[in-house]
Each structure stands twice: as C-alpha cells, then as structure tokens.
Write a protein that binds this DNA or RNA. Sequence first.
DNA 1: TAGCCGTGGTC
DNA 2: TGACCAAGGCT
Length: 297
Amino acid sequence: MTAETAAADLGTISRLTREWFVEHGRDLPWRQDGFGAWGILVSEIMLQQTPVVRVIPRLEQWLERWPTPASLASAAPGDAVRAWERLGYPRRALNLHAAATAITEHHGGVVPEDVPTLLALPGIGDYTARAVAAFAYGHRHPVVDTNVRRVIARAVLGQGEAGPPSTKRDLAAMEELLPRDLDAARATNAAVMELGALVCTARKPLCDECPIKQLCQWRAAGYPAYEGKRQATQKRFEGSDRQVRGLILAELRASDVPVTTDEIAQVWPDADQRERALSGLLTDGLAVQVDSEYELP
DNA sequence: TAGCCGTGGTC
DNA sequence: TGACCAAGGCT
C-alpha cells in the first residue's frame, strides 16, 4: 500500500467513524451544548477508570451543589470526599478539590484552556488535560484513552489488543486521524472513543456493526490472537489493603464526628493491615488525626 | 516503569 | 466464581 493510499484510508476511517457517531453516539450530559468547561472537567475526573453509568448521577448532584470551581474551593476537602460517595479512587475527590482551589486562586476561577496549564493541576494527567482542551474548548489535540488505544491497535495496527501504554505511538496515530477542521477534529476524538466504548469493545467486539470494518487491519489479517505484552493483571481486591482503605474511609465518611481506633478496628480484623491502610490514608490526606481519633480533612 | 490506588458489573 | 474490565494518575 502506498503512503497516499494509507493517508486516504485514515481519512476514510475518520469520516466513517464521525458519520457513525452522529447516528449512534450516546447523548451523554457532558456532550450537550453549553455544558461548560467545569462540568466537563469534573466529568473527566469522575470517568477515570469508572463506568459512565455510575458517573452520571453523581456528576449531576455534584454540579448542582458545586456549579463553579470557586464554590467547590470554598467547601472543606472532606465534603468533597463525602460527596464522592462510592465512586472509587477517592483521592480523585481530593485532587478535584485542590484543582478547584488552584483554578480559583491562580486562574481567575476559569478552567484553563491549554494542555500544559491543565497538566499542572492535581489529578489531571495527559488524557484528562487533552480531553478538557479538546472537548471543553475545541482545541485540536489527539485525545487517547483506553477506548481509542484499542481502536487504533485493531483498525490501524492490526493487533487484537492495545497492550501496555504506548503514549507516543497512539498520540501520533490519533493525530493522523484528526482532520484540520476544528469541529471535525473534536468530533473525531469523541467518535473514535465512542466506537471503542460501544462497538470495538474489549471482550466481544461487535465487528458486524462496525462502520470501519472494511478498513480494519485486524479484520483484514483474520483477527489474529494478540501475542504481544499485556498490562499487568490487577491484584485480587478481596482481602487487599485497598479494600481495607475503602472500608476505613467509608467509616470516616459515615460519621459526623471523629472516629476512634476502636471503631476502626470493627471494620477489619487484621491489625497490621488496618495500620497500613490508615497510615496510607493519612499520607494521602484522605484522613487527618485529631488527638487519638480520625476524620475526613 | 511497574505497582499501587476503589468499586461494582459481567461472563 | 474469580478474573477481567471500566473516558487514568502518580510515584
């Protein structure tokens, strides 16, 4: 295949995916016109490693309570952790509060537009910075999440799985899929992501329904099994320190007053694990000690 | 960079 | 039923 043909195919992949998106993309809250940069930022933080269906109700409550960065910044960090409820990875709530504070104090209460400034905010990494710049402000940046990585691996590279993160490779590939036009570029980012979420899924991809199956390199190769490296498998959660942290934090969230070590001892039998978990929560700022008791910050 | 960080749903 | 997966970030 010549370079020209390849470039043309990338353009076709991009266009077909956008056309599919217009027809099949979900009407998610953060995609509505005028949703606002703050709402999009909050949604992106909440969506980190967390399914859409669990984010939507929490996001709506969050934005009703804290409609601006300044409003969240004026709350206690612990209120953010409590309002996070059971979304998981509660340090995200703490980071979001810290980001709101930085935005209020250093950026005039307005969510920054450019990737480097966004990256400097706590809890905002490469994906989230690009997503906010692209979706909230319409900047032309490749946005690469786990869905996009999978689509690129399959459709462009002909591999069954994305394997371990390969940021440079995937950013370059996504960059090539982005049209010059700003609106079309933003739509492409959303469309490829959505294709990975709804059709080109991790387990049972719906290849028959795929708008770019004719151009998919993985399909053309006969769906070879993935042979490359894989991401390390997650450790078992049941009985882990992570579980203990979660249980202790749930105890702190549920209480209006500081919690005693005796009360914490009720949530988990193993004292060593309790100490490790509690110490970790203190280090992370998710808990603070008052005399011999503990509470949210 | 590999390991850690929650929680719940799926097959 | 247990492993896998989910719009990642940080160290």
